[in-house]
Design a protein around this nucleic acid. Sequence first.
DNA 1: TTTTTCTGTGGGAACGGTCCCATTTTTTTG
DNA 2: CAAAAAAATGGGACCGTTCCCACAGAAAAA
Lengths: 350, 350
Amino acid sequence: MKSKYTTIIDIARQLNISKSTVSRALTGHPNVKEPTRKAVLELAASMEYQRNSLALGFSKHTTNTIGIMVPEFMSTYFPSVIVGVQDVMQAAGYNVVICQQNESYESEVSNMKLLLSYRVDGIIVSHTKETRNFDHFTLAQRRGVPLVFFNRVPDDMNVPNVVVNDYEAAFQAVEHLIAIGRKRIAHLAGPESLVNTRLRRQGYLDALKKHNIPYNPDLVLSYDLTTEKVKIYMKHFLDLATPPDALFAINDPTAIAAMEVVKAKGLRIPEDIAIVGFSNDFSAQLVYPGLTTVAQPTADIGRTAAEMLLQELKAKVKNDYSIKKAPTVQLPTKLIIRESTMVKEKMKKR
Amino acid sequence: MKSKYTTIIDIARQLNISKSTVSRALTGHPNVKEPTRKAVLELAASMEYQRNSLALGFSKHTTNTIGIMVPEFMSTYFPSVIVGVQDVMQAAGYNVVICQQNESYESEVSNMKLLLSYRVDGIIVSHTKETRNFDHFTLAQRRGVPLVFFNRVPDDMNVPNVVVNDYEAAFQAVEHLIAIGRKRIAHLAGPESLVNTRLRRQGYLDALKKHNIPYNPDLVLSYDLTTEKVKIYMKHFLDLATPPDALFAINDPTAIAAMEVVKAKGLRIPEDIAIVGFSNDFSAQLVYPGLTTVAQPTADIGRTAAEMLLQELKAKVKNDYSIKKAPTVQLPTKLIIRESTMVKEKMKKR
DNA sequence: TTTTTCTGTGGGAACGGTCCCATTTTTTTG
DNA sequence: CAAAAAAATGGGACCGTTCCCACAGAAAAA
């Protein structure tokens, strides 16, 4: 079965020249006479020649393609990081293959193997909430495929990464709740496996400590980021003898799901309970009331990760394997205050 | 520079057998003696052998990979279609490569070439709002790469596609507005290039006609799906001598952006103006008031498209090129009524 | 036993490019 | 104008895998 794709050999035969010359003409090698080059390019265009990237990557051991692995893409966070990555990578002449894990560790492992089997030149990763074993990542490193992590970063791997200061951002968010007079601040934390969870919780704890608010373990729950659990835990919080007057949620979907529970119970936001989320998803400004949250520079995160990966790729070509501390870039966050934490006076002004 | 990847030749050398046998053992060919197979598999595992998909695809002319091209993925619509596609394709042993066009025609063309250069076996597509030229799609067909379209379908290509009944859904949505007593129903339509735009507008027109509401051209505007334009057009509508008392928007982001304008002007939804969107994006239930919209079975759309593509791939293998009308599958929609169109009495009941 | 049919294995072409190393042709130089 | 240098081209190895063909040895059928 003859393939329907034109090859350089087809072109060479038609012009009665060698495939080497055709190859040179097509890749822009200087040593080709102008008329020859012109003839090749014209024939290639008319035959709709399309280079075979498989053959190319196979032969050159480099594919000009990078992978990006994200745990999910139903919130706007990861898609917009991806857009940032594509931005930089495409400008640098790389293709970007997107993999989505549905928060499943298994998918993560198989997607990683997939990317490696396609010999991508590098990978940008944010791991799933289930990931506790990082062997598939070290495998990539052993294969000489540079990795750059963002957002969800393994804490025992020396690997370049771009993050925000989760600790500081959480600290500020909680201080904001304290500033509007809240004393019983609950925290819905994420799974222990994520660094973010631990850093944000520490920020929460330290903010309380700074303002002499005793830490109440009953008001902190770690959960698995599923909407059903938010409902259960939130009901639990609200049914306490002395329920919380504020909630700091690990992320916006959590905060929004929590808001539903609060509203269903007939309580008012922020009067009865003020709520703060994290990441400034697109929906944060849509919910009613508007959700106060920590904005992350998503597109910048993607762009920065891409630039770091380009650095790594360049270093690799130069065989620069100096073993030094992998770089960590921290990008700034910004607390966006909306109605979900607006004290009375301010609300009236609107 | 020796590659760091293990090859079947490395394995063959170590075991002192031929690479053919190694290949057979690894692919599960029956004609391999049990001890040989075991030895190969064990050594492969210990050397962390990973098949080179480039070499494989290159040699076999089939990559077991399909592409999916979506115009954007900041709304929840396309991501959730993608999840449906991955679901089916992965179960069938295919890999899925995701491409995102940022609504740019140029990206669409270059992504198409990219996918073809990687020799994907098939492609699932929803084209961008800018796409008016479909040569890059027919190119794929000429190359023998089957296409399946969904949602945004070119109307002059005989190609399998999965859609919803946009006409009918729009008709129902507008009838609903009429049922709650609205007479001056505006319509923010999408770009002319999309079939959806035309079908939904026709549904709108016919619903008006059926209920003897004269068509007022001043109340219908086509636009390019950018938020800024929604603002301009919506302001224009509201500033009319007799402004509309209802809006049927081409999609949810449009409806939501329109709501902002209405609220900013101090008008009430639905009392002053009732609003209906399309697609039931995740945000439709979050906005205040909740947005009435036409729900599309997104995951099913993805699954169905994937199944159709699998059909095509099977047909291709069997060389079944019977030229018949390409199948169109229409999936059901459902009008979801929320507060943005709830008449007074019903609202009080809550 | 002899012939035929399996079974298991090895050898090598093929896939479509790149790239190094001739070799030929053209240009420059002494 | 011959020799040297540069430019343009051709030849063929190579990349990792599959798969067809050949063939040896074993098992089954005659």
